[in-house]
Design a protein around this nucleic acid. Structure first.
Lengths: 200, 200
DNA sequence: TGTACATCAGTGAACGCGCGTTCACTGATGTAC
DNA sequence: TGTACATCAGTGAACGCGCGTTCACTGATGTAC
């Protein structure tokens, strides 16, 4: 009967290995996308052989689900932290920073949906948390819902095209486009410049 | 020495089979995405066995490249046709219609980039044709480049989120959001309503 | 403290699968005389 | 018109690959007395 609060050495080891597996999984996602994620390859990197992973994850699907959930949660936390107190420009630049930090992680959340994959309920819950943060940030400016939605779609439009490389060779700085959209949404507040300074 | 203009029966047959292969390939892309495209499965659907496909395509990569090129070309043609004479709302609604008609085709062009895949030059050429059409449509309204870019990113933002199902269960019509963005970009022209009527 | 047992992380072999691709070959279609 | 040859679409077997996953097993770590 172990102390529920204290962790046994085995439990600590377990969570540590689990974390390392996920870390290697992220590296694979970052370099080749989620669909190329291979259990055997991960196992090799972690230094153990294939079947051992099944001590830590029920299978490939559970691992991917875990990554997606982590990505959502990370985004939700990042936005909430950046937007406390609620502030649209800070939120927007936190979003951009988060996207640029790891493009594949962004695509895991907002990219082309994986065929045949259905998000579990947890993810839906977190997704609405993100939306709630968005709404909070826009709360000062009516009509709230429409503004929040517009903010979301406009920023995503730029980010997804930027991350996918569709602006390459077009001779302009995507950051300026991003800033211009923010300015357009919040005319005259001057807040967007503050946001840019933040991200520099 | 065959007439260069007239096609021999064999040539006609060849192009016909090639077309059918591509058709089946599109069905696969539409149902499971590009990364799930399988030569053997296509061959089975066409009614011949795997290796036979190599009479028509050098390999899987060439087939995918062909599909991507076709998608780009189809979009370029659609936009050019819709925007003659140049008109932003018509172009926008043609884009939306084209996207909704076949979401996976849209994702093939603007979705998460396929890891390790590099677009051939042809595609880059067509991509700039699309951009040119966009610029034409915006030509009447300075500053042209910025408006065209903004149009592009805003519409893509809505479309990609809509197609990926991120608006599901949020209780509003994406078409209205789309129309609102158009209205915002072209204030007071009243043209966007015309565009909506077009797409209805 | 030491001994007996239970737990569980990790291994290695194996299964079945579908993939892209090659190769030697058959058989039908087209061409030349 | 018929005969001899060339072209080429399509087949079936095979190769090698890596995948996810299962299974019986070893060996170390932890627990109970």
């Amino acid at each position: 009967m172990p102390d529920t609060g204290t962790k046994t050495p085995r439990e600590r080891y377990r969570t540590q290995v689990r974390a390392e597996i996920k870390e290697r999984a992220w590296e694979q996602v970052a370099s080749a996308g989620a669909s190329a994620l291979s259990l055997n390859a991960i196992a090799k990197q972690v230094g153990m052989s294939g079947p051992a992973l099944y001590r830590y994850f029920a299978g490939r699907d559970e691992l991917i689900t875990e990554l997606i959930k982590d990505a959502y949660q990370s985004l939700a936390d990042t936005l909430r932290a950046a937007s406390a107190p609620p502030a649209v420009p800070a939120l927007a630049h936190a979003l951009r920073r988060w996207a640029l930090d790891d493009p594949h992680r962004y695509f895991l959340v907002y990219g082309t949906p994986v065929p045949g994959y259905h998000a579990p309920d947890d993810v839906t819950v977190i997704a609405s948390q993100i939306m709630a943060t968005l709404l909070d940030a826009c709360a000062a400016l009516p009509p709230v819902l429409h503004l929040a939605l517009t903010l979301w779609t406009r920023l995503h439009g730029i980010l997804s095209l930027e991350l996918a490389g569709h602006f390459n060779g077009m001779g302009f700085d995507p950051a300026l486009l991003f800033a211009a959209e923010l300015d357009d949404l919040l005319p005259g507040t001057g807040l967007s410049m503050k946001g840019i300074a933040h991200s520099a």
